[in-house]
């Protein structure tokens, strides 16, 4: 089955192996491996994408059901000439250990800051409740994201 959708602002046409997930479509058909495949049951958040304006787990979206939708993956959050402020902050704070959860956390944080420019520490934690870091590197991640709000205030 062929589906048409918009990924990171670009209209694409891709072959879907039914009833596969949007995650498989992104990784295997469109060559966008930033969204990670881990739990396949919506528990880890490493496949997080923004689908029609909402943060979701792409492993739980049926690819055929994403026809006509607009998807932003981690590959699409940064401007052409640099990093998104969330990526910049995590880079500077060293908020990465093994890095596997990082793309999902970046997408969830980008979604958070799009809705709330100055989230509190608790709001940051709530927003990342669906993203698991098996290295348990949450402290550095949360400190980095607290810095995004602070930089913005200057």
């Amino acid at each position: 089955m062929i589906v048409e959708l918009t990924v990171n602002g670009v209209p694409v046409t891709a072959r879907v192996t039914n009833p596969g997930s949007l995650l498989d479509l992104l990784r295997d058909e469109l060559g966008l491996p930033g969204s990670k495949n881990a739990c396949e049951q919506g528990e880890c958040g490493s496949c997080s994408v923004i689908l029609d304006g909402e943060l979701v787990c792409s492993c739980l979206v049926m690819a055929a059901d994403a026809a006509g939708s607009s998807v932003t993956t981690v590959e699409g959050v940064s401007p052409d000439d640099g990093l998104h402020p969330v990526q910049e902050a995590m880079h500077h704070a060293g908020a990465v250990q093994c890095g596997f959860c990082t793309p999902g956390i970046v997408v969830a944080a980008v979604d958070l800051f799009a809705r709330n420019a100055h989230p509190s520490s608790n709001e940051i934690k709530d927003a990342l409740a669906g993203n698991i870091c098996r290295c348990t590197g949450y402290g550095a991640i949360i400190r980095a994201l607290e810095g995004v709000g602070a930089t913005d205030e200057h």
């Binding site: 009833p19 396949e40 049951q41 787990c57 492993c59 739980l60 049926m62 055929a64 059901d65």
Partner: peptide
């Protein structure tokens, strides 16, 4: 198929292989 948060877990683990889906999202 609404949000898919239950159905797609069953699909991903091979428990369900739907033939026809009504996408309600």
């Amino acid at each position: 198929l609404a949000g898919g948060t239950d159905l797609m877990v069953e699909v991903n683990f091979g428990h369900i292989r739907p033939e026809r889906v009504i996408g309600l999202r």
